[in-house]
């Protein structure tokens, strides 16, 4: 373990907690009545911290796993997420969606923090399973009216850009101190996931 890891992780984790402690946090799936349209779709995933951290974690974990997971996970996630969205829109119930979303952040954050290199098939399976929860939550709350296609397009692009953000953070591992940064980001993600899990179980 690099000597500088813990202090940086600690700093990032503290920063994460400060963000969470900020008043009136904006949570995913809380907004209602948004009109459709590209911009609404683009902004929807970034409006909730639980969704954001999980999306970023997918990219980060992809970097930890290396190719081909680096690109396979971000390819698989939107597809399975959309499938979950389809189920949500059709009213097919999936139990424990909010718990699943929170666990996704916690689990993938820990994967990144401890640099767990799962086999590709297992990693894809884990990410896909979590993607169903995220998609279902968003699909069930997709606003009526507006332009569904542009909304969906914006939503998927935003999700992809969050994966890309995770990949870029992960790519910092090449630099001195970058590995600690990536693991610190994993720690923050895991903490955020834990907090949302506590809320979901409360």
């Amino acid at each position: 373990m690099p000597r500088h890891l813990l202090p940086l992780s600690l700093v990032l984790a503290t920063a994460g907690l400060l963000v969470l402690g900020a008043p009136a946090p904006v949570l995913a799936h809380a907004e209602a009545g948004h009109a459709g349209g590209f911009l609404s779709g683009l902004l929807h995933p970034v409006s909730g911290l639980d969704h954001v951290v999980a999306m970023v974690a997918v990219g980060l974990w992809g970097v930890v796993l290396g190719p081909p997971a680096l690109w396979l996970l971000p390819v698989a996630f939107p597809l399975v997420m959309a499938l979950g969205g389809l189920l949500g829109m059709l009213g097919v119930p999936i139990p424990g969606v909010e718990i699943g979303i929170a666990v996704s952040g916690l689990a993938m954050g820990l994967m990144v923090l401890f640099e767990i290199r799962a086999p590709l098939a297992l990693a894809a399976l884990v990410v896909a399973a979590f993607a169903v929860f995220h998609g279902h939550a968003h699909g069930a709350e997709l606003p009526s009216g507006g332009d569904a296609l542009l909304y969906s397009l914006g939503f998927v692009i935003a999700t992809g850009l969050l994966h890309l953000t995770g990949i870029l953070i992960g790519e910092a591992r090449r630099w001195r101190g970058g590995r600690a940064l990536a693991r610190g980001a994993g720690a923050v993600i895991a903490l955020v996931g834990l907090l949302f899990l506590q809320k979901a179980l409360a």
Binding site: P74, V75, A76, P78, L79, M81, A82, L83, G85, L86, L87, G88, M89, L90, G139, L142, A148, L149, S152, L153, F155, V156, I157, T159, G160
Partner: peptide, 12 residues
């Protein structure tokens, strides 16, 4: 994958 996901959401 982005196009497929978009189309799938649209289908729903």
């Amino acid at each position: 994958s982005w196009i497929a996901a978009t189309a799938l959401l649209l289908l729903g």
